[in-house]
Amino acid sequence: MAEDAKNKSTYQSRSELKPRAWIADGLRVTFKTLVRTTVHRPNTIQYPFEKLVKPDCYRGRPGIVLEKCIACSKCVRICPNRCIEMVPIESATLGKVKRPQVNVARCMMCGYCAEVCPTNAMIVTPEFELAAYSRSELMFDPFKLQFESKPGYEVCSPMILPSEIKAGKTEMHNKGDMAIKDTVALDAKKCISCSRCEKTCPVGAVKMTETGEINPKTNKPIKKPAFDNEKCVSCEQCVDVCPKSCLSMKEAM
């Protein structure tokens, strides 16, 4: 087989690829590098003392601005590693609320939580030196997760609807735009007026409103949820809690 290769090798005949001077070319290249790195500085970066310049969009560990967060748990839903969890916290300014807690040991820094966050409370941070002595240290509770926000840390993936492309538009929508927002649709026949969706909505976009009908048994007016699409952040929490699964998401396409 080795003989076969010898016969097949075509480089011997190509004059341009014939080594001219054994290893002299390599010696020259390395010597040039030696001179350059001795006169100027080498290409390396002395890591603990100097660090790479990171762009603002750098995806280190996730960070949070507690004041902006509305506890919609969209980040919990999107996280591919299921490392985010909503935990109850108590603080002087916020009172008793739920905020996300991130298990950074499991986080794969995909940045989805910041991308879907409707209020840009979840951000990507340039913090990447996360080594710790124990796993519990890597459990970032909401207070530990806080990070000072900068516009560049907020992630937004603008998109356009397929129907708009067909219509010839090129303007893209940022997140939260009405045009691309998925809305909640109600199957009124199934609804039992339990008002759980109203209680669970983080932004108060669901209001139980009277439909005009009256319950014949109790003689009280029947209430059904009404959705305020301006306020809605499409978090799907109401869809999840609905006991009769009469809510569904209507995708804007």
Binding site: A5, K6, S9, P19, W22, D25, G26, R28, V29, T30
Partner: peptide, 21 residues
């Protein structure tokens, strides 16, 4: 650089040519 360091280097050619056919 790469051309001189590898393609034109007899030692590199000796190691890579005529094997793994």
């Amino acid at each position: 650089e790469y051309y001189q360091l590898m393609d034109m280097n007899s030692a590199f050619r000796l190691r890579t040519e005529n094997n793994g056919y």
